[in-house]
Design a protein around this nucleic acid. Structure first.
Lengths: 101, 101
DNA sequence: GGCGTTGTTCGATCATTGTCGAACAAGGGT
DNA sequence: ACCCTTGTTCGACAATGATCGAACAACGCC
């Protein structure tokens, strides 16, 4: 089945904010913002792969990320330009708070 | 009891985002952004006063609003300067999406 | 003092969601 | 063909949170 990747403009703000309002997902977004494209497996933040898959789905369906298959892996990247265009300052603001030591 | 109004700097980003990730609370924030200070009672968006009180508490404890007593009412205002200082662009981005007709 | 107005708090209910293990699906390599 | 790796999906469960009515508290006014 096609991965559901809606355009940001059709996603309600509350869904975008809710997607970012989780610590694990925020760590994922930070990693993607710094490291560019990343394999799902490399985004391990202390949760099971089922949970990770769930979080990536939430981010994807909020229009924040894009996923493409690459062999047996899947590469995820942040849709930064589109987010910055529709919500200028949002990602910068959210990412500005330094991750906990 | 003192109203719990923490400084924004001690509130985790996820809490700020979660506070904004609700439709009723967004309507409240929009109203405050446009109309300045407002009485709680004037912020009726189709929910009971118990629910409204709950939402105002969430916003207050996220460091987004400040409340002061004024006679039998309570006046709420958005702490815009502080939010803009710590998260530049966040409120603008969030408020940019036009409220539904 | 008594009453109406304005909010808060409490307890209950119901929906949402974060989490996991297990089962399944798709690829690549040997 | 087999297996291992990588992800997704499926229940299940626990925690959180949105919502309400009712009870309570504080204030102003008559």
């Amino acid at each position: 089945m096609e991965p559901h990747e809606p355009d940001l403009t059709v996603v309600p703000v509350t869904s975008v904010l809710a997607a970012l309002a989780d610590d694990v997902r925020l760590q994922i977004v930070r990693a993607l913002a710094e490291g560019g494209e990343a394999a799902c497996g490399s985004l391990d933040f202390g949760v099971s792969k089922a949970t990770r898959s769930h979080h990536l789905k939430v981010l994807r369906e909020a229009g924040l990320t894009r996923t493409r298959a690459a062999g047996t892996s899947r590469l995820v990247r942040l849709r930064r330009d589109e987010v910055d265009k529709l919500y200028p300052g949002l990602l910068d603001a959210v990412l500005s708070q330094r991750p906990p030591a």
